[in-house]
Every structure is written in structure tokens, then in C-alpha cells.
Write a protein that binds this DNA or RNA. Structure first.
Length: 201
DNA sequence: GGTGGGATTAGCT
DNA sequence: GCTAATCCCACCA
């Protein structure tokens, strides 16, 4: 499998959020490779998006968001979970895509050991997938086309639905969440989400 | 089936 | 001091 190039991430952030669905995230660990298919993402934009961490300028925490496209942005949330993002668009603009859910593909036993829960619940949320994949603050600011943590291309062009983003108060009405409909690893698969609209890539 | 609270840390006001 | 792009468990129906 081929790694996704910088050009893939240089595109419009909403397009990248859609295009990442069906692609693969892989981590090479001493215990072996872990890999998952991306089934849910959210876009965070530089304009009119107060929910975006970059919206109030560059700080030590968010400076990775202002790096070149294809850089990872990993941060700690609620004091105990990490969230994994990919920087998108032109360097210095401060946009990114949050990866919210994966379908486990490889190293499932290892992921289950790290999460200690049922197979269905090991990677179906942004904090969960970081725990399962062994992603932490050491990965913040690293390029995702080289090193141990990689984003890999895939032929698949899955159907896509969009909805409002999850867990935010600011700009809560924006339709910037994208997911593969019917995939059981989507984070709110069992719940209902308002304002759904179906479209296909 | 659904809801409410606690865990735990860094960054902001 | 308060809040956050979260998760899990206890409890109720």
C-alpha cells in the first residue's frame, strides 16, 4: 500500500475529510503493526469556525495545526484522552481533519489488549482509537507520510453521509462531520444524529 | 432502553 | 477557577 502524499492533504479541508473515508491509518509498534480503516471524520476550518483550535491564533498547543499539509496534530482532551488530526490546506492556514472512528483491520488482538473492552468498542471514537492505536503526544507535529505512523491510500470510494459535529458547543450547527453510513464502527452508530443528509462521492 | 456524574490535565481568563 | 473536538460505569425504567 502507498502512503498518501502531501498533495492529498493540500486540497480543500472538507474534500480531504470526505476523501479520507475508506483510507487506512497504520502504526508500526514494537509489538507489531496495527491498522484501521477510517470510517468517520470531522473538518475544522480557519474561517467562521470558533470550534477550531486554530481560530484564536497560534499557541504552543495548536502550533502543529499551522504546519505543512499531512502533519499530525495530537492533543489531550478532558485530561485523559488524545485526539488525532491531520493538517490540511496551505501551510500556516490552520485547518485540520479530526479522525473520529476506525474499523479495525490489523493487530486487532493488540488493540483489544490496550483497550480492554469488546471488539465493537475498541476504535469507535476519537479517544478510543488513539488508545487502541498507541497514538499519543509524541506523534504531535510529525509527518504522516514517513515514520511509524502513516496514512495509506486505498481504491475504495465509499458512500458518505454528513451531519453536525459531535461534542462541541461552538458552531454546533455546521455540517462538517462525515462518515460511512451503516458502518458499525461509526461513533454514534447506535444513536440518532440530527440533520443528516446523504450524498455520494 | 436512557441519563447523570466522575475521571484527570493543560490552557485560557 | 473553569472548561474541553471524551469515555465509562452506576443507576433507573
Amino acid at each position: 500500500m502507498k502512503v498518501l502524499s502531501e498533495d492529498f492533504f493540500l486540497d480543500d479541508t472538507i474534500q480531504v475529510a470526505r476523501n479520507l473515508l475508506g483510507k487506512y491509518l497504520m502504526h508500526r509498534l514494537p509489538e507489531g503493526e496495527v491498522m484501521g480503516k477510517i470510517v468517520e471524520t470531522e473538518a475544522y476550518l480557519s474561517k467562521d469556525d470558533p470550534a477550531c483550535h486554530a481560530s484564536r491564533g497560534k499557541t504552543r498547543r495548536n502550533e502543529a495545526m499551522f504546519g505543512p499539509p499531512g502533519t499530525s496534530y495530537v492533543y489531550l482532551i478532558y485530561g485523559m484522552y488524545y485526539c488525532f488530526n491531520v493538517v490540511t490546506g496551505e501551510e500556516g492556514v490552520g485547518e485540520a481533519v479530526l479522525v473520529r472512528a476506525l474499523e479495525p483491520v490489523k493487530g486487532i488482538d493488540q488493540m483489544r489488549r490496550r483497550r480492554g473492552t469488546s471488539p465493537q468498542n475498541i476504535t469507535n471514537g476519537p479517544g478510543k482509537l488513539c488508545r487502541a492505536m498507541g497514538i499519543n503526544k509524541e506523534h504531535n507535529g510529525k509527518r504522516l507520510n514517513q515514520g511509524n505512523l502513516l496514512l495509506l491510500d486505498a481504491e475504495e470510494k465509499p458512500p458518505v453521509e454528513k451531519s453536525t459535529r459531535i461534542g462541541i458547543k461552538a458552531a454546533a450547527e455546521k455540517m462538517l462531520r462525515f462518515y460511512i453510513p451503516g458502518n458499525p464502527y461509526v461513533s454514534d452508530f447506535k444513536k440518532s444524529t440530527k440533520k443528516r443528509e446523504v450524498f455520494f462521492i
